[in-house]
């Protein structure tokens, strides 16, 4: 079963009389455990598309299935529940909660979104911190670690709930070249280890070089669909 199926997806923003067609009918399919990026010039609709996949913004028209579920008509509450259960997010600005330690940041989804029992929670968080190479930094606060480290913690937070899908809108935009490469490699490793699907939107050629599937958007329309190392679909 495909992880994400989009058919004739349209997103129109209207503010007053003005209508902006951000996505003008796109079709695509993303299989489980893929490493995918959406590229394209600024304003081409990458973030809009990711927001729709992430159930942060409902499509105006078309069909969208995520993890086998139709997400087009979800209420706010149901969308939040769906995100908490199935989707991990990695943000451009890391977006860790400053008053929580690294450990508590990764623990947050297990405690405040899902309700894991304490023992399992502790074990799982430590496991994830170890997996992203932050196992000994759990006690630190976000302000005490570097940008690259923050993004690792964010990756751990996105994966901690066993989400099958992680969405990352420009995750390397605020990182230097070396750190960016390390973060991308980490994500790829995570994909291999946990069979999680990663979907990016990016300008960053380093990501583009590393992903296996690239969708190119232009003006809200899918221009090109490219596979680097022979993915499982066509």
């Amino acid at each position: 079963m495909s992880l994400i199926v989009a058919e004739k997806l349209v997103k129109t923003y209207s503010s007053g009389d003005l209508e902006v067609k951000a996505i003008r009918g796109v079709d695509f399919v993303i299989e489980p455990a893929s490493f995918v990026s959406f590229i394209g010039p600024s304003g081409s609709g990458k973030s809009t598309l990711l927001n729709m996949i992430g159930c942060l913004d409902p499509p105006t028209e078309g069909q969208l299935k995520v993890v086998g579920q139709d997400v087009t008509g979800l209420s706010r509450q149901d969308a939040a529940r769906f995100r908490g259960e199935h989707i991990g997010f990695v943000f451009q600005d890391f977006n860790l909660i400053p008053v929580l330690t690294v450990f508590e940041n990764v623990e947050y989804p297990l405690q405040m979104v899902q309700s894991w029992p304490k023992d399992e929670r502790m074990k799982r968080v430590q496991e994830m911190l170890d997996a992203v190479g932050m196992g000994d930094q759990g006690h630190k606060y976000p302000s005490q670690i570097s940008g690259g480290q923050k993004q690792r913690v964010a990756v751990a937070r996105a994966l901690v709930t066993n989400a099958k899908l992680v969405l990352a809108d420009e995750p390397t935009a605020n990182l230097d070249r070396e750190t960016a490469t390390m973060v991308i490699e980490l994500m790829k490793k995570m994909r291999d280890e946990f069979k999680t699907t990663f979907v990016f939107s990016t300008h960053d050629p380093r990501i583009v070089d590393n992903v296996e599937i690239t969708f190119e958007l232009e003006d809200g329309i899918l221009k090109r669909h490219e596979m680097a190392k022979g993915g499982a679909h066509g």
Binding site: A80, R81, F82, R83, M112, V113
Partner: peptide, 9 residues
């Protein structure tokens, strides 16, 4: 952030 990652209203 917390809303995006699924914290209920």
């Amino acid at each position: 952030t917390i809303s995006a990652i699924g914290t209920l209203p």
